[in-house]
Amino acid sequence: MEILHFDIAAPTSAGGTRAMALVGVVASGNLEVLVERSDAPDRCAIEISTAAHGFRDLWTAVAEDFVARRAAGGLRIAINDGGARPDTVSLRLAQGVRMIEEPEA
């Protein structure tokens, strides 16, 4: 497995009060995204575990795009990747942020 770490400056903090959100599943072409809160409201930490080696540049681009476009500050995100395409990754990240901002049930 290849493990990638990103710690990116995040202009906008995530809202909501939920402690945790989980979206997706580890299957071929899919991934799971676990979103939790961190102590740094202006940073977004992302850790990726993937069996597809050698795609650091692609992950960097997807992660930076995500943090720039979404309210990702104060989040730490853990990803288990089953070989998802970049558009699927972006979709799951967006779903994860949306879910952690949802009102608590």
Partner: peptide, 21 residues
Amino acid sequence: IGPERREISPHLSIFDLPTQF
């Protein structure tokens, strides 16, 4: 023991397979 606990399989890494939380 929810996903935030990351109680993953200790064996899948032997096969270089991804785990699920």
